[in-house]
């Protein structure tokens, strides 16, 4: 069975749990106390991921780190519809990849500001928030343009992809980072669309919406 080294309050762990739930995959959670225990920096965990980062997916004897990589792994191995990582629509794979990289930028800005607010990490939170606003502006414009073409999600397809799952958590948790989404109406509409994906699940700080 799949095993997930997991921490409840991590947005990067949540995106993997979300993908697992959407694909209806069973897994065994292995909880790592990120705060205050700093278990992800323990000798024991560094043997699992030398970078000391969560999450890590274990499939048999394979260990895979990096939440975006795990999403791609899950979608390309376990999604029979082949939509979540759209291998049959190769012309959009570049865009999917671009948004996966964008999700990493969200981790270093939005998520970093949230770590400062939640766990008192010594991080220049205002600088992170400024970076986050730049990213959110780009994304809101992109989603507004997509809506003009009747695309609800990040990539020009009828359906969501791993790109949406990768970008979703830290934006949905923006309040906890001290970042208001007030000026990003297209992002807020997109958040609702992601919440309506069958199999959607929640975490502390991420609320459900109406399913219709």
């Amino acid at each position: 069975m799949l095993k997930l080294y997991d921490y409840e309050l991590s947005g990067n762990c949540f995106k993997v749990r979300l993908m697992l739930s959407i694909l209806d995959l069973e897994y065994e959670p292995h909880l790592i106390e990120f705060y205050p225990g700093r278990e992800h920096k323990s000798q024991e965990f560094l043997r699992i991921n030398p970078l000391g980062q969560l999450p890590v997916l274990q499939d048999g004897d394979k260990l895979l780190r990096d939440s975006q990589a795990i999403l791609v792994y899950l979608a390309s191995n376990f999604d029979s519809s082949r939509k979540w990582y759209p291998l049959d629509t190769v012309e959009v794979l570049g865009e999917v990849q671009a948004w996966l990289a964008f999700a990493d930028s969200l981790t270093s800005s939005l998520s970093a500001a949230r770590l400062h607010e939640l766990f008192m990490y010594e991080i220049d939170a205002d600088k992170c928030r400024a970076q986050a606003h730049s990213l959110l502006t780009v994304m809101d414009q992109h989603l507004w343009i997509n809506r003009q073409r009747n695309h609800k999600f990040l990539c020009p397809l009828e359906h969501a992809t791993v790109a949406d799952i990768a970008c979703f958590p830290y934006i949905a948790l923006a309040d906890e980072a001290g970042v208001s989404l007030q000026n990003y109406p297209s992002i807020r509409i997109w958040l609702d669309e992601v919440k309506r994906i069958p199999g959607f699940t929640v975490m502390s700080g991420i609320f459900p919406t109406d399913q219709q």
Binding site: D126, R129, A130, H133, S134, L136, T137, Q141, W144, I145, Q148, R149, D175, E176, G178, V179, S180, Q182, N183
Partner: peptide
């Protein structure tokens, strides 16, 4: 479509949005 996109770019430049938006974090509290 091009006109809609052109408008986005003109307004963005006009109001130099990206750096000024940093001031918008005033509504941080839930």
């Amino acid at each position: 479509f091009a006109r809609k996109v052109a408008f986005i770019h003109v307004m963005e430049e006009l109001l130099s949005l990206a750096e000024q938006c940093t001031g918008l974090s005033q509504n941080a509290k839930i």
